[in-house]
Nucleic acid binder design. Structure first.
Lengths: 350, 350
DNA sequence: AAAATATGCTAAAGCCTTTTAGCATATTTG
DNA sequence: CAAATATGCTAAAAGGCTTTAGCATATTTT
């Protein structure tokens, strides 16, 4: 009833009447280096192929210290931004023989600390991290330990680590300028309460644009640790409290979603009653009526660079090679939601 | 410059002047069973806590054969359906001390075969699988090997494995009935070409509803291995070729998306020119104008049941305990996109 | 022709745990 | 009081691989 026993390197060696070491060396491409004759190397390879021997990865890892697993930490794998980046990273990692083990933090610092510990226990070879705040010392320690590591989307302030981020300041600045150029004066920003670096820079872009035009800021900070319905409600209240508001910028895709829902409920039509721009593109924004103007992040490039940095660190032995800090430029995709209607249209709708 | 050496079980034993075995047994909760005195057990636990010793998971895994890692295979982690299920599974797995390693298949059978092999090499403790066709023998072998395994979303025909699926036939039947009840006669179905089981049953539900009303089927099968723009184009052609079509059912969320884009381009307004229902709910459908009627899958329950089945198999020793085949009932969420406009409204728009 | 070097391979240590068999000593039983 | 059983713990094997030091033999150098 038992299936045939798993074949071991020992069996290969025995059958070919060579040593285990020889088989191992050949299998790891160190035959030349270790002066195993070509003919023997080939004999080994052939037999291994023939019987379909696959080394036990656990044993390999235990001995070599390499697991060929990358730890991916995102805020929420169900968020299209992270899901898409994860998908792209996954593909490129796989192409290079690495597997992904992932966890969602849900912005919970304590839980994230556990996740990092678990990843360490599991001896992941490298880290791809989009972390909540409060893990500065942990990540610093990781960096110091020399483990390949890339932060993305956001960084931790004061932690000198490789990072691939998007220039949210410029992105938001351009978005705001686009609104200002059309004569909008009362432009709101809806952002989150946590001080993640990417949110701060996005807000700065908005602030600078308004400052240049001597216009006052109008900002709502949303506490995310509440039910979706409450968040929508909070936004409704905000809009109601600012009936003069003509345009609104959302700093993330999910805020944009909640915002659209809030505007729906209020019956504020877009863009007639209010213009809308969100950070971070996705299918919904593209297909919404009207299509939503967005600051699109270059996801593909992002994933590519993340993996590139990581692979370099994984291969290159140089420990203190200096950090890579890559700032990618987002792209304002102007769609209908931010185009000021003609006066006649507005009048019609009054 | 070097950080302090990682602490080993050996160090613990030495410091406490007990054997390694004792420490191991205590740490694995087998103190009682192996008659380690309570006082010693506590001494061990205290010291371990004090110095923060964490066993090397690789060594544990190698020795015990358990990795506490689950392999998750989905069609595309960037698809909101899979991303959401992944998120829910992840949470519950973590609660039970399991980590997730995942891969997207992209409907590529050959690549998926590799993925399964890799998972096996990595000695995952269990599998959660939404597979493309063509892996019947591989999965059968896995099942026979006794590895805990749950298929979800779809099954492989003829493979007797645990499975958690959604009753797409009933879901689509009800959706079609809803349209028929409103007097729609020419109802199209847009589905994919591949013969995945879940797609087949969804189509059957549609077919049965039409049959009961003696209405002809109107089906378009989309080949997914093309560019998005082409898919949209194909749907446009389909609609143009069937101008009498009054309503359309999409069998997946992404088909629904493409379909909405196609209808947009054609200028066919929903639901005035054509009623729309899609399988599988998500934020876009909820927020779209008009909101799209969907056959919503019970994602939370799904994830819960998947993990429940898996954990039972992981704990329970019984190898041939019989298979679990769970069929969950989806829910028709009627929104505006499938509500037949009054005659006057229609006339207005003519 | 002896010494040095190159060639081709292997023995065995090491990675860090878990787990089994079993050794003393103490207690109970007949 | 000897034999049986219980108690509390440990030595050592096992898990499957990588890697280092080094052993013969063959070839080249002085």
């Amino acid at each position: 009833m038992e299936l045939k026993k798993r074949i071991l390197i020992h069996d290969i060696a025995k059958h070919l009447d060579v040593s285990i070491a020889t088989v191992s060396l050949v299998l790891n491409g160190r035959a030349k280096e270790k002066r195993i004759s070509d003919v023997l190397a080939e004999r080994v390879l052939n037999y291994v192929n023939e019987v379909g021997y696959k080394p036990n990865q656990l044993a390999k890892s235990l001995r070599s210290g390499k697991t060929h697993v990358l730890g991916l930490v995102v805020e929420d794998i169900a968020n299209p931004f992270f899901a898409t980046v994860a998908r792209l990273i996954e593909r490129k990692a796989l192409e290079n023989g690495y597997h992904i083990i992932y966890c969602s933090t849900n912005r919970d610092t304590a839980m994230t600390k556990d996740i990092l510990t678990m990843f360490e226990e599991r001896h992941v070879d490298g880290y791809v991290l989009a972390l909540p705040e409060g893990l500065e010392s942990e990540v610093s320690a990781l960096v110091r330990s020399g483990k390949p590591l890339v932060m993305f989307d956001r960084v931790l302030s004061g932690v000198p680590a490789n990072a691939v981020v998007v220039d949210g300041a410029t992105g938001m600045y351009e978005a705001a300028q686009h609104l200002l150029a059309q004569g909008y004066k009362s432009i709101a920003l809806i952002t989150i309460m946590h001080g993640q670096t990417q949110m701060i820079t996005r807000r700065q872009g908005y602030a600078q644009a308004l400052r240049e035009h001597n216009l006052p800021e109008l900002v709502s900070e949303i506490e995310l640790d509440q039910e979706p319905a409450q968040i929508v409600g909070q936004m409704e209240s905000f809009f109601q409290a600012h009936p003069h508001c003509e345009a609104v910028l959302f700093t993330t895709n999910y805020l944009g979603l909640y915002g659209l829902e809030a505007l729906n409920r209020l019956g504020w039509s877009v863009p007639n009653r209010i213009a809308v721009i969100s950070f971070d593109d996705n299918a919904l924004f593209r297909l919404y009526s009207p299509p939503i103007t967005v600051v699109a992040q270059p996801l593909e490039v992002m994933a590519e660079e993340i993996i590139k940095v990581l692979l370099t660190a994984l291969k290159g032995a140089k420990p203190t090679n200096g950090m890579v800090l890559l700032q990618l430029t987002p792209k304002l995709l102007i769609r209908q939601s931010s185009i000021r209607p003609s006066e006649s249209t507005r009048a019609n709708l009054k």
